[in-house]
Each structure stands twice: as C-alpha cells, then as structure tokens.
Design a protein around this nucleic acid. Sequence first.
DNA 1: CATGAATGAGTGTTCATTCAT
DNA 2: CATGAATGAACACTCATTCAT
Lengths: 235, 235, 235, 235
Amino acid sequence: MPFDAFTHPTDANARRARRKDARPGELLAAALDLFVEKGYAATRVEEVATRAGVSKGTLFLYFPSKEELFKSVVREHISGHFATWSEEIEQFDGSSQDMLRDCLQSWWEHIGATKASGIPKLMMSEARNFPELGAFYRQEVVQPGSALVARILQRGITRGEFRPMDLEYGVYMVLAPLLFLSMWMHSLEACGDPTTRIEPEKYLSTQLDMLLYGFSAGSTAPDDTPHLKLEQSTQ
Amino acid sequence: MPFDAFTHPTDANARRARRKDARPGELLAAALDLFVEKGYAATRVEEVATRAGVSKGTLFLYFPSKEELFKSVVREHISGHFATWSEEIEQFDGSSQDMLRDCLQSWWEHIGATKASGIPKLMMSEARNFPELGAFYRQEVVQPGSALVARILQRGITRGEFRPMDLEYGVYMVLAPLLFLSMWMHSLEACGDPTTRIEPEKYLSTQLDMLLYGFSAGSTAPDDTPHLKLEQSTQ
Amino acid sequence: MPFDAFTHPTDANARRARRKDARPGELLAAALDLFVEKGYAATRVEEVATRAGVSKGTLFLYFPSKEELFKSVVREHISGHFATWSEEIEQFDGSSQDMLRDCLQSWWEHIGATKASGIPKLMMSEARNFPELGAFYRQEVVQPGSALVARILQRGITRGEFRPMDLEYGVYMVLAPLLFLSMWMHSLEACGDPTTRIEPEKYLSTQLDMLLYGFSAGSTAPDDTPHLKLEQSTQ
Amino acid sequence: MPFDAFTHPTDANARRARRKDARPGELLAAALDLFVEKGYAATRVEEVATRAGVSKGTLFLYFPSKEELFKSVVREHISGHFATWSEEIEQFDGSSQDMLRDCLQSWWEHIGATKASGIPKLMMSEARNFPELGAFYRQEVVQPGSALVARILQRGITRGEFRPMDLEYGVYMVLAPLLFLSMWMHSLEACGDPTTRIEPEKYLSTQLDMLLYGFSAGSTAPDDTPHLKLEQSTQ
DNA sequence: CATGAATGAGTGTTCATTCAT
DNA sequence: CATGAATGAACACTCATTCAT
C-alpha cells in the first residue's frame, strides 16, 4: 500500500505514536492490578510507576493525577464487547437455552478470565468515592449489559422457551452470580488458602442449570441440557 | 426507678463498665457507617470520633489503632444469627421450598435490611489488605453460613424435594445473589440516581422462583409456590 | 511568686488562650523574616516552622496553606498606625515643615526600623502573583498612607507654607524615598558588603531638606530648618 | 542587498554565529518578561522556552541552568548607557538644572519606558538569593549610575547653581524616586485596577520641581524652570 | 477518663535537568 | 542543532498516633 510507504517502520512519527500508546498501556495495566489488589487509596502512584517500569515522574507525564489515572483504568477496560455480543445475539439461531449457555461462556472468556474481571470489584469498592465514575459505569457497562441479557430472556419468552417473568429482575439473576464470582476471585479467594477457590467451570455450569431448571425435583433438566465447557481456567 | 437502682450512680465500677461498652458502641457504629461509605483508607479516624461525639484522643483510648478499630467493626457485626438459624432449621417441618423462602426472608430481615449489610462490601473491598480478617470472615461467616444453606439443600434432596446437585456450588447459587444485593446497595445504588434502585422484595422473590424452578418454560412453578413477603423495605 | 500568681498555672483556659495567640505569633514572625529574606516561593514551610520552634504539622494546624500563611503575614503587619497618625495630624499645631519632619521620624520609628519594613519588599515582589493581596494592600495601606501625607501637604498649602502642587504626585515625593529605603535595606544592603549601607538618619535628613527646599542654590534652608534626629538605628 | 551578502546563506559558520545570537536573544527576552512578572522561583523554564518558540531542551543548550539564565538576563540588560551618558555630561554646557532635567528624561527614555525597567524589581526581589548578582549589579549599575548623578550635582555645586550637600545622599534623592517608579510599574500597578497608574510625565516633572526647589512656599521656581517633556508614554 | 495540641513519616505532585534520537 | 520523553530530588500537605494537662 503506497500509504504505508510513507510511514516506514523507521519513521520517527510512527515510533513515537506507538510509544504514546505503549507507555500508558503498561501504566494502565499496572494500575489495574494494584487498584484491584489494594484499593484506590492504598495504592501508591510510585508503585504503579515502578511496576510499569518507569519513574513516578513519567506517570504524571501521561496522567495528570492519580484520580485521572483511576478513571482511565476504568474507562480503558470498558471499551466493551457489547458490539460483538449484540451481533452474536442478533445472528444466533439455536435455542434460548443454548444462547444463555453461550452468554455465560463468553462472559468468562472475555471478562471473567481476564484482568477485566477486576473492574467490578473496583467499582463496588470505590463508586461512592467517585460518584461520577459510578454514573459512567452504570451508563457504559451496567445498562448495555443488562440490555443484552434482557434481549436473550425476551427472546426465550417470545419463543415459548422461557416462562414469562419480570425482565429487569430476571436479568439480575443472570448477572448477580457472575459479578459475585469476579468479586470473590479478587477478594477472599485472592487472600486466603486455596480451599476457598471456586472452580469457574463448575460454578457456571451450576448457574446455568439453576437458571434453566431451578433446584426443585420435578423440574429436572432434560437430557439435552446445554453443556457448558470453558476453554481454559485462565491465568 | 427500680431499673436505675441496679446501676447505682455511686457505683463507680458499674458506671465504668457501662461506659466501656457504651462508648465503643457508638464508635463502632460510626466506624461501620464510614468504612462502608468510604472504604478503610479514605475514612479518617477523626471523622469517626466526631460522628460518635467524642474526641480523636478518646477513640485511641478504646482502640489501639485504626486497624484494630476496623477489625473490631467487622468482628462486632458478625456475631451471627447462626445459632438461632441453626435452631430454626432443626425444628422446621414444612417443605424445603418453604424453608428456602424463610431463609431468604430471614436473611433480609436480620442482615440485608440492617447495617450489617455493609459488612460484605467491606470484606470484598479490604480482604486483600487484611488477610487475617478475611480468614476470620471465612471461618466465622462464610463457612457457617454455607453449612446452614447446605443443610437446607441436603434436606430437600433427601426428602426428594430438590434434585441431586453439587452441594458446594448449589450453596453459591443461594448466597451469591444475596451478597451481590448487599454490595449493590452500598455501592452503585448509594452513589447515584434512584433509578438504579433494586427493590429487595421483587429481587428476592425472583431469586426464590429461579432457585426453585428456573426460567425454562416447562418448569413453571405450581400454584402453591412459596410466596415471599418482606416485612419492611428497611430503614 | 507574685508574678506567677497572675497567670495561675492551674488555669488551663487562660493558658490555652495564650497559646492560641502565642503560637501563630511566632509563626508569623518567622514567616515574615523568611518571606522577606528569600521571597515567597523560595521559603519552605518547614523552615518557617522550625524557626518558630514547632513542627511542620503544627504550622498547618494554624494556617490551612502556605498561601494563607503569606496572606496572614501581610495582614498582620498592617493593622496600622494610621489611627494614631491621623490623630497626631489632627492635633499638631506647629509649622507644616515640622509636621513633615515628624512624619518621616515617626515612619522610621514605627515602620522603617521594625520588621514591618520588610512588607513593602514583599508586596513589590509578590503582588503580581497574589493580585488579591495587592488590592488588599493598596486599599489598606497605600490609600490610607497617601491620604495622611496628602493632608499634611494640603495643610501646608492652605497655611501658605507650601507652594501649590498636584497633591497626588506630591505625595509620591514623600513616600517614594521611604519605600525605596525599606526595599534597599531588605535587598541589596542585606546581601552585600557594608559599604552599601544607607544611614537612615542622614538619608531621611537629606530627604527632608530636599522636600522642603530642593537643591537649587537660591532656595537654601533658613537657619530654623527642622532638624531630624532618629532615636535609634534599631534592629 | 549588500548587507545580506555578508551573511551568505551558504556560509554555515555565519549562520551558526547568527543563530547563537538570535536564539538566546529571544530566550533572554522571554525570560526577562517572565522573571519580572512572576519572580525567579515562580517562573518555569518550560514557559520561557515556549514563549521563545523553542523547546525546553533547546534552552539548556544555550544556558547551563536556570540560575545562569537568570544571571544572563540581568547582565544582558545592564549593558548600560553609561558611556553615552558620561559623554553627554562631559559635553553639556547648559545650566545644571537643565542637566538634571535631561537626566530624568533620558532615564525614562532609555530605561523607564523600556523592558530594562523590570531589572530593578528583579534585583530587589532576588538580590538576597543571588548575592553574586547583587554585587555585580552594584558594581555595574549602582556605582556608575551614582557616579554620573554625583557628577551632575557636583557640577551644580561648583557652578553655584546647587547648594552644598552630602553628595552620596543627594544622589539617592535623584535615584530613589526613579527606582521606586520602575518597581511600582512592575508590581502594584501591573496587578490592579488602572486607577493606581502613575503618569510618568507628571511624576518626573514633580520630581524635578521638588529636586530643584522643594515644597516650601518661599522657594518657588523661577519662570525659567526647566520643563520636562517625555517623548512617549511608552508601550 | 477525656481532650486536642503536637508530631513526623508518608503521599501526590512539580519541575529543573538529562540524553537518546 | 533541536527535541521532548524520562527522571528523581524536593516540596506542600495529610493524618494516625502520642501525651501533657
């Protein structure tokens, strides 16, 4: 491509451009780790810088303050899979039960098993100290996410696969266990003996079963219950 | 006044004893509020003292450090209704579905609707900074609580009311939504517009329904579904 | 001891009251010295505290910020001799020449020879960085001071002792050399070899002569020229 | 154009030579502005560089440190009109009163109305932090300047136009109001409402009158008083 | 027992200075 | 020669903790 010729790899502009992205990226990653691990206040900016391999001064070259760094961390990890997921929902043509299974599976792959799983803990811990961020998170994450799940449930109801329900609260039943799982992983599980460990595969399988058929004896799952299989237990 | 006679004003020992209990009580209450609201690090001991109506120096008369104050706050609010609950389970003789309903209802009354609902947020936020507290919480709350729920589920399975399941993960399905609810109330819900508000009654009803029958169309609840009714929507 | 009896050691309130005044007083004195000596920016709050015999933290107990400390320093030294001076002018009944002599003499005694002489340097150096303070100074010091001198000049004109003149600029002729003297003392004179030293008595005598009779040969002073004699060259 | 021919574009040496002079010139000008405006400490080298249209790094190519930059600024603007003035004095053959008038007029034209008028403020503000500069200023400016004025006064005395006086302090009477004027312009006048403005022409006229004849009624100026007229009230 | 003045280690932030490109 | 990213020493300010009264 002729255009590429202009910005030859040795082209200083390109290199600088990459820098501009690279350095903050490492800082944001380090900051996410530490904020999740210790909370906002207990995290020292110098530690963030050190972990990112730069000096304290450099951090302030990219983020005007600790608060802005925090906001950037949250925003960074929200860019979102919503567009992709929305697409997938649109084009899915299996049963709604399968859809729900895919939903949990995809959440684990793209959120639960990644660093992004630390964000909910961050938000829950700090939302009251950063109300502006709380609003941002509600608008950018909670609402779109709820909407996606609501579409799945609505589809199931429409197709006669799910029974009628209050969609808003039905959505919570899908999301609450997921969010609880990610918070657990970054709090009690991360600080204690490994006996506390939740195995995501079992956990999500159980959730799927429960969501579909509940615990009552009569409502046992048919043999063709969607089977959830996670690719990797991560990290 | 006969009651006053017991704690006779000239009885210095008695007075001091009461004091020792009374003052820390106010301090612990103030501290719980603030720790839940702002997190451990962002809470100033002076603010705690002021809110409790005493001076900063007095606080250190009762708690040797901020850290000990924090630990006391958590310990204090964990005293636990486990003995009572255990008793209730022992003597319950209705269906296991009803038992589950009573369980949610009781949790709301004694935990969810009280200040104790702030503890889970505190633990999730600070467990990694206070691993000792995390262990304590697991031992004193998570395990006994899980055991109680496990007994309910086991009873249902034994009596043929619930289908067989992995008890450990079944318990999570009961507890995760409850813990999520309390965290939500003290984070995003507490910092933003009231549209985010979760109505506990609806939320818990939905959870009960889901737990028992799931979402699938075939497994609709029978007419005698246990109906959950909360006494008061709190505070 | 009779002296101790007055400030009875057991009177906690009285002692505390004195404290409240005493501590800031020492801090303000130390701050004035240092601000005059090194300028606002180059002065370290810790140095101010140390010179006042307290810790850095204590300084912030009395002044919420370095900026407020600076403002307080300027305000403190402005309370002013204006009331007294105004009175003196009112009741003076000698010649206006004598009045002018007394004016210079009094300025030296109460301002020039005291720490207050550092304030003009401070204001000249920092007014552009603290416009609000500049306005305050103009209003509280420059204007009242100019008004006083203007009254003296006007009286002389009215009584036929001084020739008619533009009062506003006449006032500058009285004040400019005084302000220059105080700035000189706190800048070049304070940093260099003693040969630069201006002797206030000679300086002010010369100024008085010039103000009254100028340099021209014809206008020599009569034998009864008011003679200026400073009490002490201070410090 | 013949002049251009000298600095032929292909002559690298010439170009570099010009650069060496040109770039620092802009930097010194920018630095003078900012140092006068905000003081030494509050002036950021980056701001100086930006205002001069170069990068921060470039500034350090020409000046090894902020301190050296400051010293250069002061030195640069002290080059002095002393040779010219000395010449003028030598060749002047009017009255000493006229000489004094020309002196004030020339000071205004070459110092007061130019950026050099900021130097006295700088020296007064920073002399104690840069004693070396203070000494330099005394040697290069104060002493030659005083000597010039002293020559004028001495001439007047010798010719019987001025009355005998202590020359050293007589000189201060000439210089103090001038230095005060330039400090005023760069401090209180520069930060506040325009009502504070001193009109140089009136101010200097008044000073001249006072210097020659004083304020006393008997010593009114003869009709042939030298009349001071400034060419431009600057900027 | 209660106070609140005093402390000083610790933190976020700035900015002169360096140096690889 | 010019740049601007990177540095780290230095500073203003905070706050848990102490202790004399």
